[in-house]
């Protein structure tokens, strides 16, 4: 996926929304900026499939050697898939953050959360500010 086509949360998660069988499904991952800032990731604790998440709820953790970072749900809904490949190939997060490095898929139950997400240009602006 091209980052330009994605939506981003303030907390550095990206979202791609697609229609599948009349349901809105969000694919969620971590932005390249976030992955680079975390450096040397060593472990990811993936969300359990079936878990209900609210917007802004921590539903996944990524660990570097000496830090743990929460991944927050950018949309509300049910986790319908988690990217098990990450467990063994954590480098997917950095090598292909917007493709094979996706983290989870969420069946959206409440679309209000989508409104507070930003587009790629706005997100890039945020990142530029944070780098200072």
């Amino acid at each position: 996926m091209k980052p330009e086509s994605l939506l981003f949360a303030k907390t550095h998660e990206w979202v791609a929304v697609a229609e599948e069988g009349g349901q809105k499904i969000a694919t969620v991952g971590l932005s390249k900026f976030a992955v680079e800032a975390l450096t040397d990731l060593v472990f990811i604790e993936l969300p359990k499939v079936g878990r209900q998440v609210a917007v802004g709820e921590s539903f996944c953790e990524v660990e570097s050697v000496k830090a743990v970072s929460d991944v927050y749900a950018p949309v509300a809904g049910e986790v319908i898939a988690a990217n098990d490949k990450l467990a063994d190939k954590l480098e997917l997060l950095s090598n292909d953050p917007y493709g094979e490095g996706w983290v989870a898929r969420i069946k959206i139950t409440d679309e209000t959360g989508l409104k507070s997400l930003m587009d790629h240009a706005a997100y890039q602006k945020q990142c530029a500010e944070e780098s200072h």
Binding site: V42, V65, K66, A67, V68
Partner: peptide, 12 residues
């Protein structure tokens, strides 16, 4: 595996 421990994860 220090991320399990209190000095990093504190209350968690």
């Amino acid at each position: 595996l220090q991320t399990r421990e209190q000095h990093i994860r504190r209350e968690k």
